[in-house]
Design a protein around this nucleic acid. Structure first.
Length: 434
RNA sequence: GGAGUGUUGUCCGAGUGGUUGAAGGAGCAUGAUUGGAAAUCAUGUAUACGGGGUUUUUCCUGUAUCGAGAGUUCGAAUCUCUCACACUCCGCCA
């Protein structure tokens, strides 16, 4: 959520910033007008309340002295009515203001490429050239199915489209990858957490998924009363329970930055994406992801974003997977983000880079919604800045390993760093199938 | 699922309609004392929003907040209703 004070004091700047994210100026004008009306009503109500408090004390005093307070009581009865009236106005205006504020995206950083969509994204750096093959590389789903380590057909029968069974060496590979990620992240100072996979609406609102993006997630309903959703949603990312852990808290400033990491499944309904990436592991309704979250002081967040991005990059480097880093344009970055670097890994069959991690500085946008604050050395309270990044999407990493490490005979060479996690298995072949 | 109890400031804990933003204690901060420390003493110790002053910081003032929301009242932490959560016991269960 944006700070109404910032918008109030710099309306033109706010409009210009949000215009790069597709927000119209009228919306901001409306917001400012509501804010003015709200403060006017609030001021009047508070003045009357001050009067009422004062007179009420006099009434109490009069009663103690056994004096008559009838006139004052009658007067305050009228004042009370007017206060109730004004408070109703304030409440209505506050709701309206909140309605708009909850749906406005974060201000983009000055360094963001400006543009409406991903064609305006800018490559920041590239690591290694795309993998070269002396043969025609196959798609990871072909490799996986031929090796008997991925089974999409049976998953379709059991669950539906966009689900998968990992089997045998495939399951082992998935497990090896996420254990490797968790070990790397914890050695970089991230604290490991296993959070709930179902969260309530307040949490979804706190990290910015709600109220705008209810379409993208799975919410639980009561079978006996299907019209009434329970206040529980399957997490679309571990970011939600990780950040909301701190919702409503004031943390000691000396403990910042706080780094946490978690492996969780992520559940996404992906409405509107029908037809895209219909095959393979790239776009699933359920996928494993290791997430990294940072809470820090505002002045540190830009340095922390670089660190977070490098943490994620090192994972790809150790796996030997070619990738590049892309700065997202103002129109492509996520709702909560001020600046986002996407890590895109090379997928030989598609012959292009595909997102495998998204590292964002959300500045105080989530912290304001979730009321996450810290106390500085002087005892003063401020909002923290929050950052999140995948480290990394596990399924997509497996896809990238299958495609980049494939051999002409369809076997997969296991990346060296994963060997200890694969019980020494050097190669995945058909003999590993069941 | 059934029955009961409870939810007050950083923590513990008092408080059943009127100088209660909230007793008391602990903790913490600053100062005094000390060679230093402990002990002791003194002072201070919430957040949000509005207004004013300053605009680096400090400050003044009003309002609200005692799980959340609504109601009764001139006035509610205190009375009424709804909801959420926690704990205890019983039942069921991986």
């Amino acid at each position: 959520m944006l700070d109404i004070k910032v918008i109030r004091e710099n309306p033109d700047w706010a409009k210009q910033k949000l215009a790069t994210r597709g927000i119209k100026g009228q919306e901001i004008d409306e917001l400012i007008s509501i804010d003015e009306k709200r403060r006017a009503a609030l001021s009047e109500s508070e003045e009357l309340k001050a009067k009422r408090n004062k007179v009420s004390k006099q009434i109490a005093q009069a009663k103690r002295n056994k004096e008559d307070a009838g006139a004052a009581i009658a007067e305050m009865r009228a004042v009370g009515k007017r206060i109730k009236d004004l408070d109703a106005q304030v409440a209505e205006l506050t709701d309206k203001q909140r309605y708009i504020l909850l749906r406005l995206p974060n201000f983009p950083a000055d360094s963001d490429p400006i543009g409406p969509d991903d064609s305006y994204n800018e490559e920041v750096r590239k690591w290694h050239e795309p993998t070269k093959f002396s043969f025609e590389p196959k798609a990871h789903w072909t490799l996986g199915e031929d090796l008997g380590i991925l089974d999409f057909d049976t998953a379709a029968k059991v669950s539906g489209a966009r689900f998968v069974y990992y089997k045998g060496a495939g399951a082992l590979l998935e497990r090896a990858v996420y254990n490797f990620f968790l070990d790397e992240n914890t050695s970089e100072g991230y604290h490991e957490v296993i959070p709930p996979y179902l969260v309530n609406d307040d949490s979804m609102t706190g990290t910015g998924q709600f109220p705008k993006f209810t379409e993208d997630v799975y919410t639980i309903v009561d079978n006996d009363d299907p019209d009434k959703p329970l206040d529980l949603t399957l997490i679309p990312t571990a970011e939600v329970p990780l950040v909301n852990y701190y919702r409503g808290k004031i943390v000691d400033g000396q403990k910042l930055p706080i780094n946490v990491t978690a492996l969780t499944p992520a559940f996404r309904s992906e409405a509107g994406s029908a037809g895209r990436d219909t095959r393979g592991l790239i776009r699933m309704h359920q996928f494993n992801k290791v997430e990294m979250v940072k809470l820090c002081k505002p002045e540190d967040s830009w340095a922390q974003l670089e660190e977070l991005t490098h943490n994620a990059e090192h994972l790809l480097q150790k796996l030997g997977l070619p990738y590049h880093v892309v700065a997202l344009s103002t129109g492509d970055a996520s709702f909560t983000s001020a600046k986002t670097y996407d890590l895109e890994v090379w997928l030989p069959y598609q012959h292009k880079y595909r997102e495998i991690s998204s590292c964002s500085n959300c500045t105080d946008f989530q912290a304001r919604r979730a009321q996450i604050r810290y106390r500085d050395e002087n005892g003063r309270v401020h909002l923290v800045h929050t950052l999140n990044g995948s480290g990394l999407a596990v399924g997509r990493t497996v896809a990238a390993i299958l495609e980049n490490y494939q051999n002409e005979d369809g076997s997969i060479t296991v990346p060296d760093v994963l060997a200890p996690y694969m019980h020494g298995m050097k190669k995945i072949t058909k003999e590993n199938a069941f």
